[in-house]
Design a protein around this nucleic acid. Structure first.
Lengths: 380, 380
DNA sequence: CCACTTTGGCAACGCTGTTGCCAAAGTGCA
DNA sequence: TGCACTTTGGCAACAGCGTTGCCAAAGTGG
């Protein structure tokens, strides 16, 4: 909110919103700085040299030198050894300083509150869990969140905290940070959770759906997430999806994208609570309830195959409590359906089936991803 | 190919590719220039003043003055009258000069070739149609395309042609411009159609799927296309979709997005040619074949509802020969399913159903959109 | 020990959008 | 009719961006 420059935080320039996408020099600098930071993060402990950064960004070596000099001055990057010489002066390796900043991730689930304090690489340096009654209403939830986050920060101390990413179930508006029509909790309808939490935590807050946060967190590991497009399917008490398309989280115009549970896969099938017939969620959870995991995985696989066909994603990741109860069963069952479909109709490109994997992080996938909601603003 | 500046074409700066997304000053200028051009085009014949451009882009009035001065020097924009005064000097209205450049759009269908010459607004200034046997192979197709495009350009004469957008059915790789696995035409498999056409036409060529081209063309009219996200469903001899998400055409990592025909909506349903069971395309076309349009529209509507739920799009547009044979029946039938589903489960935001409309342009939707494949590079 | 290669900083530069200033061109009131 | 005021938009000077030319530093290899 302050217009002054905070020396503890990197100046990434003005971030033009969608209504005013004109780019000025500050935006240019911010773009390139975030780009270099992103490559530094992707390089991990191995590091990158200035010339490698220049090659990957298309910037001149000199521009990279200036940018990395600013990052080093801000404490975000540091020199770390040298490469072997290839006949001349050996390259100096640059590395991200993970502990230079922290970000908070908060997962508000229906019955549990999970908070993580993550470093710049997204790795959690501290975790706290507490029971929660989400339906009880705003007062207790805000108090609990403030208490846990304060405890987390006290314990870890140290570097400045960039902000808090908050993930919660159900429909909400990411742009305004307002909840809407939370099933079974009408008193939350229309509640401005983002602003209330920002007030309670004393931090900038980014609010998003749990599935979106998880997908964003999984994007960090390209090797696991596949290419630039993948889908995270979350099967817990309900079924939802988080979509990363062309490298960016796709939220849809009203943050409504990823409503995966009520995809109809059986015309005139059994009636779902939502009123439709033949929804995946209903079919899948009914199969789980009667202990037929093979059928549950098969139904989930058919819906996943539909999604893969429609969006041409590179990978499908599975998570959520119900999946985690029998992870391999679900993974293998979904993979079989995708493989069968791929064999029927050659996929473009590789011609092989889209791989299915279990989401990393287990029960903490969402909380880790919530921190990424904040970190994403720094990197590109 | 030439590195020299062509005074007949606007210099939009270097367009960094995905592998080297670093932004330099040329890219900055190109971005802002394209942005202003896009606003000029959106303003249409009504025009925009410099200060309005400044307000919408976030750029300063002086920056807009410089940019528009360049555009006027290139002949792409012109002053056109004045607004009424609001107490001071009246604003000068700027307008895009539609005829300053042309673009070619080519629709290669299985049995017909349609070519359009479009001005900068995307409106066709000349159209040619010719029968075509796509399966016959590359030689005749290339010759026919070259002949028709040459005739089109001869007849219209005039301004420089920016390039040719080419739309054709079936799977292909947009990035490389290579066809793959065209059903029923194995000799096209792996054919580098883009480069061959560029050679034959003597123009830069952009190649894409017919559904993608159509969606891109429909994006031009925001009033019809709804917001920034919509889906175009094309029902002809097959069923496909073109997806515009967050204002950009979504192709997927391998140009495979939009494969909509083989979405399974009936587990264990009747077998489809593709080998699966219960595909929309099979169910829908079978219903059409037996004259049951209501059932066809309903099946299409259920698949459309799945897509709307998953991607949170603002609008669904229908096109293709089969739809055009009974346009209102399909539109109303699909709309009914979406309305029923929306009533069951309040859509986020408005709470009302996603509107369904017929794609503008009728049989020429794809050819018009193909020209837009080229024009898109100029605007933003 | 010297020639060569490669890295990366310094200084000058061209270009971008920005700012301060002012003429132009209207409105509205006396 | 005249004057004060408002608004538009160009001119000139400016700060800041990445780029270029140059050169010291730090290796390899004969």
């Amino acid at each position: 909110m302050s217009t002054d420059h905070d020396p503890a935080l990197p100046d990434l320039g003005t971030r033009p919103d969608a209504a005013a996408p004109g780019a000025n020099l500050l935006a240019l600098r911010g773009h390139n700085t975030a780009l270099v930071l992103g490559l530094l993060r992707a390089a991990g402990e191995e590091g990158v040299s200035r010339l490698e950064l220049a090659g990957r960004t298309g910037l001149t070596p000199q521009a990279v030198s200036k940018i990395t000099a600013r990052l080093r001055a801000d404490g975000l990057a540091a020199e770390a050894g040298r490469r072997a010489s290839t006949g001349g002066k050996p390259r100096t390796v640059l590395r991200l300083v993970p502990g230079a900043r922290h970000a908070v991730g908060v997962h508000l689930d229906r019955d549990e509150l999970t908070c993580v304090l993550a470093d710049l690489t997204g790795r959690p340096v501290a975790v706290r869990r507490a029971p929660l009654d989400f339906v009880a209403g705003a007062g207790t939830v805000l108090a609990a969140a403030a208490r846990e986050v304060a405890a987390l920060r006290d314990a870890a101390g140290g570097p400045p905290v960039l902000g808090a990413g908050v993930a919660c179930p159900g429909p909400l508006d990411h742009a305004t940070g307002v909840l809407r029509q939370v099933t079974g909790a009408p008193r939350w309808d229309g509640f401005p959770l983002r602003d209330a939490l920002a007030e309670a935590l004393g931090l900038p807050v980014v609010l998003d759906k749990d599935t979106n946060a998880a997908a964003l967190g999984l994007r960090r590991a390209p090797a696991e997430a596949g290419g630039a497009s993948f889908a995270y399917l979350h099967l817990g008490t309900g079924l939802g999806a988080g979509l990363v398309l062309d490298g960016d989280l796709y939220r849809g115009p009203h943050t409504g994208a990823g409503e995966f549970g009520h995809q109809v896969v059986q015309l005139d099938g059994p009636r779902c609570d939502c009123g439709r017939r033949g929804c995946v969620e209903a079919l899948c959870l009914a199969a789980v309830a009667r202990g037929d995991l093979a059928a549950a995985a098969r139904v989930l696989g058919v819906a996943a195959a539909n999604l893969v066909e429609l969006l041409d994603v590179d990978r499908v990741l599975l998570g959520g409590r119900t999946v985690l109860a029998h992870p391999e069963r679900f993974r293998d069952g979904v993979a079989r359906v995708l493989a069968d479909h791929a064999a029927l109709r050659g996929r473009p490109g590789a011609g092989s089936a889209v791989p299915v994997a279990l989401a990393r992080g287990g029960a903490r996938t969402v909380a880790d991803g919530a921190a990424e909601l904040v970190l994403t603003a720094l990197f590109r």
